[in-house]
Design a protein around this nucleic acid. Sequence first.
DNA 1: ATGTTGACATTGA
DNA 2: TTCAATGCCAACA
Length: 112
Amino acid sequence: MSKEKRQSDFFERVWEVVAQIPDGKVTTYGHIAEHLGMKSAARTVGWAMQAAKGTWLPCHRVVNRFGGLSGARHFGGPHIMEDLLRNEGVTFDDDGCVVLEKHLWIPGSDGQ
DNA sequence: ATGTTGACATTGA
DNA sequence: TTCAATGCCAACA
């Protein structure tokens, strides 16, 4: 594990958190970044998601602070992410945003 | 090495 | 109220 620097431990860090998101729950980029110690790096968290597109990570459970599916367009279809979340049991607001008040999950509050 | 972009967040006018 | 600008970090050209 010398040349295998991966994308960066930062990415794995984000992926690890995302992988811990319980079923039917969602989290925001800001909370992930904050949990990683980079509260202001919410944008970079989105980059980790882009790299996670080819992984098994439930990127669809990661939304912006509005609960809007910002990355839905990167899923290959704006309705893909929406359908996935609904399949998880997530409720959507009339605006098409996830009800964070009911599904907002914070990293570290699950296993710790 | 530098500059731009990016699935965001926050503050100011 | 809405719109614009700024900050942050990492990857990519």
